[in-house]
């Protein structure tokens, strides 16, 4: 470990997330943290923003990364770093939502308009794809129940059923069921889109 610590200072080789995390934990070199944030910061923020609001997502994102600074040994390598990060993010989000008394449908309805309107066009991709289809998709996604939307987003983010199960603390069958319902809810929209396309 000591050797890797010294070598890491001179090596410009690419590391995976787990290696970056270990290097950061052992050296406290912010360059490694910066790389980790570059890897997963946006994905986590997107997940949190779609499950709550931008402001809450900002707060929770920051909390997640700060937890990594404060409790560097809380990641024990039982899962991938990304899975662990999203688990932490989800738990922080739920805690915050409970604190703010946002939960499930109330939150979804309250945030729907804000989220759709929140796409302010600052993103170049958003400027290019200001299609009705995308807006409809966002609206439809926001209308999904929290847990179904969560399962769908995590799967679209690339997590396996097992990893989603780890993040949410639910069995794989439950996750499958949520995914099925989520897809059914989005089916008409995708069907329309397909036909339009």
């Amino acid at each position: 470990m000591a050797l890797s610590f010294f070598i890491s200072g001179f090596s410009a080789a690419e590391h995976n997330a787990e290696q970056l995390f270990t290097l950061y934990r052992d050296s406290a070199n912010t360059a490694y943290l910066e790389k980790l944030i570059a890897l997963y910061g946006d994905a986590l923020y997107h997940y949190l923003a779609r499950q709550s609001s931008r402001s809450l997502a900002e707060d929770v994102s920051q909390q997640c990364w700060l937890k990594l600074l404060e409790q560097p040994y809380s990641f024990r390598g039982n899962s991938s770093f990304k899975t662990w990060l999203f688990s932490v993010g989800r738990n922080c989000l739920i805690d915050e939502m409970r604190r703010h008394k946002y939960w499930q449908t109330e939150l979804d309805m309250a945030l729907l308009s804000a989220e759709v309107a929140g796409d302010d066009g600052s993103c170049p991709v958003a400027q290019l794809s200001q299609s009705q289809c995308q807006l409809k998709w966002a609206e439809q996604l926001a209308l999904l129940p929290f847990l179904q939307r969560e399962a769908l987003m995590l799967q679209l983010e690339g997590f396996s059923l097992e990893q989603i199960s780890t993040i949410t603390g639910q069995g794989e069958e439950t996750i499958k069921s949520r995914l099925r319902y989520a897809r059914q809810a989005l089916q008409p929209l995708n069907g329309d889109s397909h036909e339009q396309a």
Partner: peptide, 30 residues
Amino acid sequence: TEQKLQQQYQHDKACHVLPAHVRRAVLKQA
């Protein structure tokens, strides 16, 4: 359908990037 869903997800994700001030705040604390 799955491909379309994935595209829409990626488009949506691209519109929700971690704000720079959050990134800066974390790195500053680090």
